[in-house]
């Protein structure tokens, strides 16, 4: 059971990275990005293909972030014209635009890479801790994800760009009055979100195989994390991600993947309807 919880924490930290990315974009650009999961898939598939072609993983991993970043630039260029609309219209059309983009990407990726699952092997055997065999890939992925989230915290609290991002997140009008280029911050939010999504995709590839058709599923998990985290709270998204990852792993182990997924969807719906937040 301990190994299930460790796997859950690892998965949860990866979900936290996804949820934080989605939260940052929602907080700064006002759009819930339904194509978020496709960015993850793009990175995992790219990394897997690059490694398979003989490239060293240390070069392949950062290179695989590029497709996610390019997709984020494409997404933002499609969403930017909507910024002139009112809140309701912008969020509604933003959902439709990102859904359309998700379908287009899903169609292209599944038609080209449908038959295989993609993963990145970590050449280290299981580790024995207190009598339990723990997967080293889960431990490494957890450490890297925690490092990324800690670095993100330092970035948004200690750097000028990070502070400007936070200011835009909290109040764009006041940020503009402080001479912060809000347009650039929105652009930066999309790139940051893509880096987090791509990074999570690489970590997912090391702990499990990624199905090219799983983009929508990953988007929904990110949405659940974002919602349970309070939609505009980065700390909440981290807490919700870890809670969701552990719950999903334990429930899948106890009652099976489908029932676990259904229960999580029900909990997320109920949380959304009753405005419950974690963190």
């Amino acid at each position: 059971m301990i190994d299930v919880v460790v796997d859950g924490v690892s998965f949860g930290l990866q979900l936290a990275m996804l949820g934080v990315g989605l939260t940052v974009v929602y907080g700064i650009a006002g759009v819930l990005n339904l194509s978020h999961g496709e960015w993850v898939v793009a990175s995992t598939v790219s990394a897997s293909l690059l490694v398979a072609s003989g490239l060293h993983p240390a070069i392949a991993a950062p290179a695989a972030l590029l497709p996610a970043v390019l997709l984020s630039i494409l997404t933002w260029s499609l969403l930017r014209p909507l910024q002139t609309l009112g809140d309701e219209e912008r969020s509604a059309l933003g959902l439709v635009v990102t859904l359309a983009l998700a379908l287009a990407l899903h169609g292209v990726v599944t038609s080209q890479f449908a038959t295989a699952h993609y993963s990145l092997q970590v050449p280290v055997g299981p580790l024995k801790v207190a009598g339990f065999d723990l997967r080293s890939s889960s431990l490494i992925a957890s450490a890297v994800a925690a490092l990324v989230l800690a670095s993100l915290h330092l970035f948004v609290t200690r750097t000028r760009t990070g502070i400007a991002l936070r200011a835009t997140f909290q109040n764009p009008r006041l940020a503009e009055l402080q001479c912060i280029d809000v347009g650039r911050m929105r652009y930066a939010a999309f790139v940051l979100s893509a880096l987090l999504a791509g990074g999570a995709g690489l970590l997912l590839g090391t702990t499990a195989s990624v199905d090219p058709a799983s983009g929508l599923e990953l988007t929904v998990l990110s949405l659940i994390v974002c919602i349970l985290g309070g939609v505009r709270s980065v700390k909440g998204a981290v807490a919700a991600g870890v809670a969701l990852g552990v719950t999903d792993s334990v429930l899948s182990y106890l009652i099976g993947a489908y029932l676990s997924q259904f229960l999580l969807l029900m909990v997320a719906s109920a949380a959304l309807a009753s405005r419950v937040r974690i963190g």
């Binding site: 759009v31 819930l32 933003g94 919602i227 939609v231 489908y258 969807l265 959304l272 309807a273």
Partner: peptide, 28 residues
């Protein structure tokens, strides 16, 4: 959703969750 004042993006996400719950239930 209306009684709880859920609108805009939140409503879209709520209905998305309903749609996926149906799919998961049917598949499971």
């Amino acid at each position: 959703a209306a009684a709880r004042g859920i609108s805009g993006t939140h409503f879209g996400v709520l209905t998305l969750l309903v749609a996926l719950s149906f799919e998961v239930l049917v598949l499971g």
